[in-house]
């Protein structure tokens, strides 16, 4: 009886008080914005039928402190990439000096992949970057995002969100002239603690032919104890 009453109250609350688009994205960001987490990932880059593979560790302390270390790659390069506040740096051991990533470089492919440096390091809340418009809520939430912040990575996005667990399973990324630039597909996700976390992501660069990048998260640690040292110069340039 209590259970039936609870279900009736839950359904009626949804019908009477439907979620706003901002509330939907608050739920999405609970899954997609990370703090104090470490990911071990494998990246497969397929371009012109040639496959390259990278393995990397990603350290996310919060939206302002992100470190990506390439542990191994088909080409032998083991670079490091760091976002510290609004500044981004790339360290190539053979060059021996961190290079500030600026302007157009942010849009360039991360290690030649279909993910840009910006894609790899974006960990801010959606509501801080985009205006939102709910286009459909039938089987999926379909939401149009248009940039409201000048430093939003993209001008426009269409996001397709699973209604039950608030995970975006597909994103279409458009230019200001509404040309399709990229398409992101989340193939697989996993519940870790209270979060649903994507563990297999595909990115297609629609401006390139036969190009696709897959990221597979092989190990995810929450409350990973990511302290200051990961974002200090002596660790970054070691």
């Amino acid at each position: 009886m209590k259970r039936d009453l609870f279900i009736i109250m839950f359904i009626s609350s949804i019908l009477i008080f439907p979620m706003t688009v901002e509330e939907i994205f608050d739920k999405v960001d609970e899954n997609m914005v990370y703090k104090n987490m470490k990911f071990t990932a494998r990246m497969n880059i397929l371009e012109y039928n040639e496959n390259r593979e990278l393995s990397m560790d990603i350290f996310m302390r919060d939206e302002n402190n992100i470190l990506i270390e390439i542990l191994a790659s088909s080409s032998g390069h083991t670079n490091r990439f760091m976002k510290k506040n609004d500044q981004m740096w790339l360290y190539i051991p053979n060059a021996g000096k961190a290079i500030r990533i600026k302007g157009h470089m942010l849009k360039e492919g991360f290690m030649g992949s279909d993910f840009s440096y910006e894609d790899m390091s974006e960990n801010r809340k959606t509501n801080d970057l985009y205006n939102m418009e709910l286009l459909s809520k039938d089987t999926l939430y379909i939401i149009k995002l248009t940039a409201k912040s000048s430093d939003a990575p993209y001008k426009m996005k269409m996001v397709y969100i699973k209604k039950d667990i608030f995970i975006p399973i597909r994103e279409e990324i458009y230019s200001s002239s509404e040309r399709l630039l990229k398409e992101l597909i989340i193939n697989e996700y996993k519940k870790i603690g209270e979060k649903y976390i994507p563990i297999n992501i595909l990115m297609y660069d629609k401006l390139k032919q036969n190009s696709r990048t897959e990221i597979v998260y092989e190990d995810i640690k929450m409350n990973a104890g990511i302290d200051d040292k990961y974002f200090q110069k002596s660790y970054f340039e070691r």
Partner: peptide, 9 residues
């Protein structure tokens, strides 16, 4: 020789 403390190096 390089030593970092906080935001300083």
């Amino acid at each position: 020789g390089m030593y970092s403390f906080g935001d300083n190096t």
